[in-house]
Simulated assay, not measured.
Amino acid sequence: MRLIANAPVSFGVFEPGQPPLAAEELVAALSEAGYDGIDLGPLGYLDLGRLAGLRLAGGWVDVPEESFDDLDATLDAFGRAPSAPFRPVPTLGPPSMPARFARPGHGEPEMTDWAAFAAQVQAAADRCRERGYEPALHHHLGHAVETPDEIERLLELTDVKLCLDTGHLLLAGGDPVKALADWSERIGQVHVKDASSALMNGDLRSMMGAGVFTPLGEGDLDLPGVVAALRDYEGWIVVEQDTLPAHRRTADIVADQAANLRKLKELGL
């Protein structure tokens, strides 16, 4: 079985200031579109007792460097939301790197202390498992784990599963269809995201404002190939289209997320 969710990041909710949609409006839009679930978004944004029939798919939390307080707070939130048949997946985010954020997708400069970072990831993964959740490391443009080689290295140094993000992998030089096959045994969650390499200009924020993450089927992602590779996948699939709300009409963002789900359904997912 697989379930399909969307995420507040698709609506620019992580941006400073007033969210473009109130939580109840976002939940209603995703429920009406036919999604099975929703990602957590910023702690405190969602009313986890009022998800209009949606289940909680998971949520991002930075890899803890010292204290587990933020991780524990996220896991506490998970426990307050409906999630069956799959438990929410804590997606562990590697630290951002300003130089990479300024020039995303090139894997430069490289992280130097892999042993220390791997130990932090492993400790966070173990903490999640103590709490009854199976985490996944989310590679990300502008962060310490960005390229296919870095993902491979992290998988070798830890036993953590992978949150495979097709858009971030594509723009970092990876092949999402090949990755879904090569890392199938280690994938704990999939984020389906399209992207346009032609819009890789400037820093990551500028790229997002320019629409580098396109509606599904409008970028460079081999979407039919991704769908075919997910035929036997079981678990949460999260549709994401990272955006800056100041550059988009809210109505268009809402329409895009409904269209993204329709596109996946048309392809047989």
Score class of each variant (00 low, 15 high):
Arg2Gly: 00
Arg2Leu: 03
Leu3Ala: 04
Ile4Cys: 06
Ala7Leu: 08
Val9Phe: 09
Gly12Ile: 12
Phe14Ala: 11
Glu15Pro: 05
Glu15Gly: 10
Pro16His: 09
Gly17Gln: 04
Ala22Tyr: 02
Glu24Asp: 10
Glu25Tyr: 01
Leu26Asn: 01
Ala29Asn: 11
Gly34Trp: 11
Asp36Trp: 06
Gly37Phe: 08
Leu40Gln: 04
Gly41Cys: 07
Leu46Asp: 03
Leu46Asn: 05
Gly49Ile: 03
Leu51Ala: 00
Leu54Asp: 03
Leu54His: 06
Arg55Trp: 02
Gly59Lys: 02
Val63Lys: 00
Glu65Val: 09
Glu66Asn: 06
Glu66Ile: 06
Ser67Ile: 03
Phe68Trp: 07
Phe68Ala: 08
Asp69Asn: 06
Asp70Gly: 05
Asp72Thr: 06
Ala73Val: 05
Phe78Ser: 09
Phe78Asn: 11
Arg80Gly: 02
Ser83Gly: 03
Pro85Gly: 00
Arg87Ala: 14
Pro88Glu: 12
Thr91Arg: 14
Gly93Met: 14
Gly93Pro: 00
Pro94Asn: 02
Pro95Phe: 00
Met97Ile: 05
Pro98Leu: 01
Arg100Thr: 00
Pro109Asn: 08
Trp114Asp: 11
Ala116Ile: 07
Ala116Trp: 09
Ala118Ile: 09
Ala123His: 01
Ala124Glu: 02
Arg129Tyr: 04
Arg129Pro: 05
Arg131Gly: 07
Tyr133Val: 00
Tyr133Arg: 00
Pro135Val: 00
Leu137Ala: 02
His139Trp: 06
Leu141Ile: 04
Gly142Lys: 01
Val145Thr: 05
Val145Trp: 04
Glu146Trp: 01
Asp149Gly: 13
Asp149His: 12
Ile151Asp: 12
Leu155Met: 08
Glu156Val: 12
Leu157Ile: 01
Thr158Glu: 00
Asp159Val: 01
Lys161Gly: 14
Leu162Ala: 06
Leu162Ser: 05
Asp165Cys: 07
Thr166Trp: 07
Gly167Ser: 07
Gly173Trp: 09
Asp175Phe: 08
Trp183Ser: 10
Glu185Phe: 10
Gln189Glu: 14
Val190Asn: 03
Ser196Ile: 05
Ser196His: 13
Ser197Pro: 11
Ser197Ile: 14
Ser197Trp: 07
Ala198Asp: 03
Met200Gln: 15
Met200Phe: 13
Met200Gly: 13
Gly209Ile: 12
Gly211Leu: 05
Phe213Ser: 09
Asp220His: 11
Leu221Gly: 02
Pro224Arg: 07
Pro224Gly: 07
Val226Leu: 05
Ala229Asp: 02
Ala229Met: 03
Leu230Tyr: 02
Ile237Gly: 11
Val239Asp: 12
His247Ile: 06
His247Asp: 14
Arg248Gln: 15
Thr250Ile: 15
Ala251Val: 15
Asp252Leu: 13
Ile253Val: 15
Ile253Leu: 15
Ile253Glu: 13
Asp256Arg: 15
Gln257Ser: 13
Gln257Glu: 15
Ala259Tyr: 10
Leu264Phe: 10
Leu264Gln: 11
